[in-house]
Amino acid sequence: MSTLDDTKQAPEELEVVHRKSGLRRIFERRETSLVLVLVALVVLFSILSPRFASAANFGQIVTDMSIVVIVGIGVAMVLFTRNIDVSTGSMVGLTAFFAADLSAKNPDLPLIFVVLASCALGGVLGAINGGIVATLKVPSIMVTLGTLYIYRGIDSALAGANQVTAQNLSPEYNTIASWTIFGFPGIFVYALIIAGIAHVFIRHTYSGRSLLALGSNPLAAEKMGIASKRWIFGAFVLSGVLSGFAGVLWGARYGTVDSSVATGFELVVLAAVVVGGVSVNGGNGSILGVIVGAAILSVIAIGLALLNVSQFWLQAIQGLVIVAALVFDIFIRRRVEARRKGARS
């Protein structure tokens, strides 16, 4: 995709935090309240469990959220265009088996080739989604719900009763996900690099702004000459490519790969993206929001696990904390908005 290349022109813009556009200030405010929610949760769990606030545990949290962030960025791009992708769980599952099986059967194959092949397969799966949505104008929820089943079916047909375990894979395959740099998990480095590129693309390129404009007002965008079909197609392809990369990471991280890998993962990703403030009505949201959303979910999951909450209650309590966090988020945002209005008058 040529669009990704022109983002590399200005990586230093990542450092620019205070830009004066009005739109941007709203986004900043949106994220500010989410970050406050995240901090509140971290403080809460640190008080409740002495083991929570440790370097090892924070390493665990960022590792846990990384795959969600990577897939979440692709899903956010799709949501920006006022579409949705619910097929990511099956794309991750299918590519995870494809990549692990490929590497197990061809141990001499360079891993970079396995990663690229998996991303390419993901890209093809995403292109099928995007092609149908963009050219046939079928609602994306129907298309991707259909392909969620189709891709999982292909995964089952391909894997059958076979499974690839960590023992079948080369030790190097594991290190794709387990390397660290100064104790910092490498898997999170991938997530940050991808997030950085996506952030610059969305905020600082004409293409990225076109994508958002398309989602916030498709008719106006079309009149302005933005080629909506191309952007929608591109967003789905990106979602597939990132799912393909996540598939390799999944196999490397969890060891055993069978046809059930990442079942239901599409909902985890959607939850993180929506908690992170990306609007399902298109045109609104940010990459930073996706990271914070994924972090909130991981902090809640790992925090509750450390408290030894009974597993039967875990999901219900997890949902409860998510709802509470979102209510808290809305409460803060209203307060901030009210204060701004007060200051202006």
């Binding site: 083991r51 090892a56 545990n57 665990q60 846990d64 999944w250 991280r253 969890y254 060891g255 055993t256 790969v257 069978d258 059930s260 890998v261 990442a262 079942t263 999951a301 790992i302 696990a305 450390l306 408290l307 030894n308 597993q311």
Partner: peptide
């Protein structure tokens, strides 16, 4: 000390094992 369930799934089982090791050092 505890019985947990991974539903025969590699991720759920892995996460459950990590929780056990962290919850009970």
């Amino acid at each position: 000390v505890k019985t947990v369930y991974g539903d025969d799934d590699s991720k759920k089982s892995y996460d459950a094992a990590v929780s056990l090791m962290q919850g009970y050092p």
